[in-house]
Computed example of a mutant assay.
Amino acid sequence: MTENMRRIYGTDHDALAPYALQPGHTYVELVGGPLDGQLLDVTALTADERAGGALLVAPGSAYGPGGRADYEPRPGCATRWDWSGDVPW
């Protein structure tokens, strides 16, 4: 899958453009876990919020629907966040 053909996290599966990057937005690649390969739009997050990573709804998590996947910024790489495990919600 090419860089411009990665699904944007949070888009509906039947969305007209689930792969459309928005101009002026900042994205990170989710690496590993149930959301591997998807892009997360972090445009609205502050630097402190980005440093904290994110718990993202992941139907394919170990906890099933409603479970969350924990993604943390990769040290030294601002464009990739690594999966660190699943958590229940």
Rank of each mutant, 00 (worst) to 15 (best):
Y71R: 10
P65A: 11
G32L: 08
T43D: 00
T43G: 02
L40K: 09
Y27S: 02
T46Y: 00
L35F: 09
P59W: 11
Y27C: 04
A69S: 13
L16S: 13
L30A: 01
Y27E: 01
A44I: 07
G53Q: 01
D36G: 13
A20T: 12
T26Y: 01
Y19Q: 12
A62L: 09
L39E: 03
V57P: 10
P59N: 12
P59D: 11
A15K: 04
L21N: 06
Y63L: 07
E29S: 11
V28D: 08
Y63T: 04
S61P: 11
V42K: 04
D36Y: 05
R50T: 10
V57F: 05
H25A: 12
G53E: 07
Q38E: 14
L40A: 06
V42R: 10
V28I: 12
R68G: 12
G52D: 06
R50N: 01
V42N: 02
G32Q: 07
A44P: 00
D70A: 14
P59F: 06
P18R: 05
R50D: 03
A17N: 03
T43C: 06
V57E: 09
L45G: 00
Q22R: 15
E72L: 15
V31L: 06
T46H: 02
Y71A: 04
G37N: 06
G53L: 05
A17R: 07
A15G: 09
E72P: 00
G37C: 07
A58C: 08
Y63G: 01
G52R: 13
G24Y: 06
S61K: 13
Y19T: 11
G53K: 11
A17I: 04
R68A: 14
E72F: 11
P18E: 00
Q38D: 05
Y71T: 07
A69V: 09
L45A: 06
T26M: 01
G33P: 02
Y71E: 09
T46P: 02
P18L: 03
A58H: 07
G33C: 02
P23N: 08
R50E: 11
L56S: 04
A58P: 07
D36F: 04
E49T: 15
P65Y: 14
G64T: 13
L56Y: 04
L40T: 03
L30V: 04
H25L: 02
G33R: 02
P23D: 12
A62T: 14
D70I: 15
Y63Q: 03
A17F: 06
A54F: 05
P65C: 07
E72K: 15
H25K: 14
L56F: 07
A51D: 05
P18G: 01
T46K: 04
P34R: 12
P18I: 02
P18K: 07
A62C: 00
